[in-house]
Design a protein around this nucleic acid. Structure first.
Lengths: 123, 123
DNA sequence: TTTACTACTATGCATTGCATGGTATTAAAA
DNA sequence: TTTTAATACCATGCAATGCATAGTAGTAAA
């Protein structure tokens, strides 16, 4: 019968976008573990490590983490524009950071194992 | 106004599921780079590296890769049950494997950089 | 014939990255 | 004062994927 399901994706040719899923959350919590920051600061910090994040990604993510109780924020005045929302980790947010960190390390370990096992056929 | 958008997720507490997105594709292509295999074999190979994959995930993924021309398959008889679909990499599939491999290494590099930068606050 | 096992297929949901467009506040320019 | 630009935050909808769930079908054993 030869069914034709599972449509083919359109963009994201090298799969970068999909691989980022779940990882941005870890990175953002990481950045906030050092000091409170407002969105643009977070974007800059990520960019320094070649992880480009845009507003359309970051704002919903911060909103979600705040709704989950992982983050809190407070308004602070700015000398050059409108006031800013400074986000900070809550205790629950620190727990999540630990968990995500563990998950990430596990994943890297697993993938590395597979890649190394078959690397002779890749290179 | 304090809008309440960005609903909170329900399961997947430590974010493992989300982090796997895009990575399974790399791993499956990796496994197939060594030798042709049918779905259950792939699942076993992944399990050896602690990457649990289930049918509901694997079959649609194989179907998609085949529709994209990354994989091909041929039926082979089995001594203990119905015939099996043996999947193999096409040239295009080998290219994708290279690209995903690069993307993965870049991502790991970026995340490592962020995590290391702030690791004193995590531990 | 019935049961159990293996293998493949189909459907729908939840989550997240992101494109897009919008609103509000402040400061500088005209 | 009014206009413009820059900064910052918010809302909506789409695309993609992992996975739960349920179904179909072929083979072999009871």
């Amino acid at each position: 019968m030869e069914t034709e399901n599972a449509k083919t994706p359109k963009n994201d040719p090298a799969g970068q976008a999909q691989m980022r899923k779940g990882v941005l959350e870890l990175c953002i919590l990481c950045v906030l573990s050092e000091k409170d920051a407002y969105p643009s600061e977070i974007i800059e910090a990520m960019k320094d490590s070649k992880l480009i994040v845009v507003e359309g990604t970051l704002y919903p993510l911060l909103m979600r983490l705040k709704n989950e109780g992982r983050l809190a924020y407070e308004w602070k005045e700015s000398t050059s524009g409108p006031p800013r929302k400074y986000y900070k980790l809550t205790p629950s947010g620190k727990e999540l950071l630990q968990e995500l960190y563990s998950s990430w390390n596990e994943l890297v370990g697993s993938v590395d194992q597979i890649v190394k096992k078959y690397s002779s056929h890749i290179l």
